[in-house]
Nucleic acid binder design. Structure first.
Lengths: 168, 168
DNA sequence: GCTTGTGCCTATGAATTCCATAGTAACATG
DNA sequence: CATGTTACTATGGAATTCATAGGCACAAGC
């Protein structure tokens, strides 16, 4: 019995399949999450995702090649780069938001609270899980949102950073 | 230098990370896509995703274990199953929709048209890419949508099915 | 000027996963 | 009783992933 891998899958018209060739990977999505959280440095991303440096390096390289991420020099001598989202990368936000909504709703027990609470600047009230604002009903856009981490999640992230620094 | 893989990643409060442990895989997402397209049989999924039978079998098993998919007998003697989305699986639709929107917008040249056009039953007009209806502005829900495949995409899928049947 | 620290990776080898191909099981149909 | 249908399982090589270790280019402190 034969499979049908004459890579028709890569030439499909299906946008989901196209998207998945770019972001169909756990680490890639977690890296994008960090970039949306404004973590721009290699080590921060490494610490918060828990991936090995090669995984991060390879994914960042691919994300750059695919046009979602650009490198920016923040220090010459020694040469240091940081990673930023391009327009194409920023445009991925709705997917992250939808993934967050699904994860909060279906991958958690009720007693665990939200990791992040969003405030909708447009109306000044809590935005909820989207895609529309739970307070004013308008569709959510990243530029109108302020994220605040729950204390527990904040501590979790700080602990990861400390643990990372401690044993390197 | 050490990495930080005391699987804190699996115990995180982050909903995106939680979701990714379930759906952070190319094949898994493509299988879900097929289920949303109402393809319920193993071989249909296999033909349209281009994955090998083990990949499909393993992913379906995990999706069932994770509660996104349930198996239903559609024929005893010989015993045959089909795969259906549970509530948890159905709830994943916004992610697929967001992925579709991003893929259509950023992973295609303008000359290639949409693969699928959605009609918003609520207003009777084209729904666009979401998350809100481009015609009436209301948030899109799967139950209010009818999908029509573009002829080109329809042919692409038929061709894959024929090719699959031809050499099995 | 020599050691220690920082930031961003690369190297290596073992473990795991993936994938192409082939084959099986349990029947129905002619 | 031979062929077809549907849903898988088996096998072995290729590719990827992971844990651990190291390297390079500099800055800062002593």
């Amino acid at each position: 019995m034969k499979t049908m891998n004459d890579n028709t899958a890569d030439q499909t018209l299906c946008p989901v399949a196209r998207a998945e060739t770019v972001v169909g990977d756990r680490w890639t999505v977690l890296i994008l999450r960090e970039l949306f959280m404004r973590m721009h440095r290699f080590e921060e991303i490494q610490a918060q995702t828990g991936a090995t440096p090669q995984m991060i390096a390879a994914r960042l390289k691919k994300l750059e090649a695919d046009g979602l991420v650009k490198r920016r020099v923040y220090n010459k001598r020694p040469l240091r780069h940081e990673y930023q989202l391009t327009k194409k990368g920023e445009a991925f936000y709705p997917v992250i938001l939808a993934l967050r909504a699904w994860g909060e709703t279906w991958c958690k027990s009720p007693r665990e609270g939200r990791a992040v609470n969003l405030t909708h600047l447009t109306c000044g009230k809590p935005a909820g899980l989207g895609p529309a604002c739970e307070s004013c009903g308008k569709p959510l856009h990243r530029e109108d949102l302020v994220a605040e981490r729950a204390p527990k999640y904040q501590r979790e992230r700080e602990a990861r950073w400390e643990a990372f620094k401690a044993n390197r």
